[in-house]
Design a protein around this nucleic acid. Structure first.
Lengths: 356, 356
DNA sequence: TTGAAAGCGCTAACAA
DNA sequence: TTGTTAGCGCTTTCAA
């Protein structure tokens, strides 16, 4: 029933005027040399006054600083970078092929990173990677445009990580890596998922199923591990037949749900909210009532689940905090400090009506 | 009914090991000087071989290029930038305070930008701005970390635009600006909204209402203009009482819907899908059936509306294309070419069940 | 406490 | 066709 009427002129001009503009003139900025000359001191002195390093007379210092302020001098960060072999940029690598529902997650991470970065006079250079295409990442690193990298997600076979390791540029990942050499910042998914699973079981449920996403995403493996650990903790044998992984397509989710219904599953747990959303739709279509006929919980929640009736029991994380810690860790590492190889952040279990 | 159990150890170490790492060693790269020396030519010659500019013997050129390839030499972009007064970065300014439902929009824009930028050997530096805080943008510009800027959205009173104008750095905006001096890339919202409004009217509706977002967002003004123009086009007088703007909060939307119901409105048009979503929830709560008792359409659709029953009539745009055109335009402008001050891109009217 | 000079890695006049 | 030299704007040794 979709009548599509496409506009023909896809690149039209404003009706009122065909006005054009052209760049002219040069911006020329005042340099450290100008300051030095104006004050009759050397560039070195000015440099020292600014950086605060090296001995310098309090009086001279004050004069320089005042002049600088009055004349709006700002050091050229790029030139400084060249001299110090730094770029004052860090690279933030986002998957360009992620589900829309994951975008807010990366966005929040980025806000955390950006906050810390800004405080350290750093900027963020982004590069998008796709499943098999890490060319943007490569170019940023090979062109030496960044001092370090933060990788936004981890895969089991991660070309990005491979590349970063061999190009020995400092980097940290958000998420867990199977590779111990990598500096990792993640939420404690195992513990979180174990806890949620346990709680659901303690409410009386015995037959639980897990519907999960790609097994190439480390996070899904971690969540599965937490789920199984929760079962065992409550003395329930892990039934591999009730664990459905790699449900990337809605159709796979549907098949899994059908199977659950056939097998008298009492509670479906989803590794993320995209899957959960699709489970909920399927259950609605089949007129399965939640929580009476089936309980549902999710190991990750975003806006997608926000307005569901009934509300969905799920785990909450703080993506911004991940970004903050990742960036701090990277900075510490760049500064030559010792950093922990793996930092695990907290979580929240939020119980709602869907597991009542 | 939300039992929240917060984890106490928000920054815990991996259980198995307290392993730490520390950065060591320096990456030292081969420079243009090394290449020159190895080949017994001057740096200039190497530079010319790489850039292809200036006369150089075919034989020499080949030798240099081969050596470079074999030894994995990559020019230092930052040094090149310093010499040429370029950064090879463009700034992408995203609102950090936007609704989650808008994030995919900005993400898609960014993908378009990133595609064009990469093709031009440029990278993207991001800065987030908040309603009243453009400090990140300022720092990026003042530190001269970028050659030009793309602004992701426009406000009626836009501090970002003000700042960019007076710092005379080249920039383009995605969206429309009331300021004619600004280079703008936008969809043709007026035309699109006029068309959608007209079509709905031609289906027999006479009493239409518009529920819209902040009047500080230029796009909302533009859409309102299109709505009114559609009414007039169909010979319907514009009733200002049925135009509800600045419905930022859900509560405002609810009041507007209540008012619509009282006033025998037959069709509610929303300026974006966040508002539409909230209209739909309200109507559902009031058990108003769509489209029988009330028709609904939206001037912008994203995932939020995707799975609604019935599907919602709306306008579709291509955010990535906006990014592509914005970046191309900026590049042209930087290159000293003449560019159009205002480029309007196309749209799609997608008719669905909600206006049946 | 201050300054001269070399250097970060590249480009671009100008000469040869 | 190639090389010499100065310079982009800053830092940093070394000397004064």
């Amino acid at each position: 029933m979709a009548f599509r009427e496409e506009d023909t002129n896809t690149a039209d001009t404003a009706a009122d005027s065909n006005a054009t503009v052209q760049l002219q003139g040069e911006r020329n900025n005042i340099t450290i040399g100008d300051v030095a000359e104006a004050l009759g001191v050397s560039k070195t002195t000015v440099s020292r006054a600014i950086s605060g390093k090296g001995r310098i007379g309090a009086e001279t210092r004050k004069r320089v600083l005042e002049y600088i302020k009055k004349n709006h001098y700002r050091p050229n960060v790029v030139a400084k970078g060249l001299a110090k072999s730094k770029t004052y940029n860090i690279g933030w690598v986002m998957p360009g092929d992620s589900n829309v529902s994951d975008l807010p997650f990366f966005q929040r991470c980025m806000m955390g990173i950006s906050e810390v970065a800004a405080a350290g006079d750093y900027d963020i250079l982004i590069s998008m990677v796709f499943d098999r295409d890490i060319s943007q990442l490569k170019s940023v690193v090979k062109n030496r445009k960044v001092d370090g990298i933060i990788l936004g997600r981890t895969l089991v076979e991660d070309e990005g990580i491979e590349f970063l390791k061999e190009s020995d540029i400092p980097f940290v990942v958000i998420g867990s890596s199977l590779d111990d050499d990598v500096i990792q910042i993640d939420n404690d998914h195992v513990k979180a998922c174990r806890e949620l699973t346990s709680i659901v079981i303690m409410k009386g449920v015995r037959r639980l199923a897990l519907i999960g996403g790609s097994t190439n995403h480390v996070v899904n493996l971690t969540r599965r591990k937490g789920f199984e650990s929760g079962l065992r903790e409550q003395g329930i044998a892990v039934n591999q037949d009730l664990i459905y992984m790699d449900c990337e397509m809605d159709s796979a989710v549907e098949r899994a749900v059908d199977d659950c219904l056939r097998n008298q599953v009492e509670c479906i747990i989803c590794t993320d909210d995209r899957i959960c959303h699709s489970v909920l739709e399927k259950l609605e279509r089949d007129r399965v009532r939640i929580p009476d006929q089936m309980k549902v919980a999710s190991f990750y929640s975003s806006i997608m689940l926000e307005n569901n009736q009934p509300a969905i029991t799920s785990l909450h994380y703080d993506p911004k905090e991940l970004g903050v810690v990742a960036c701090r860790t990277l900075f510490d590492y760049l500064a030559g400090k010792e950093v922990q190889k793996k930092v695990l952040l907290g979580y929240e279990v939020v119980l709602k009506g869907s597991t009542q």
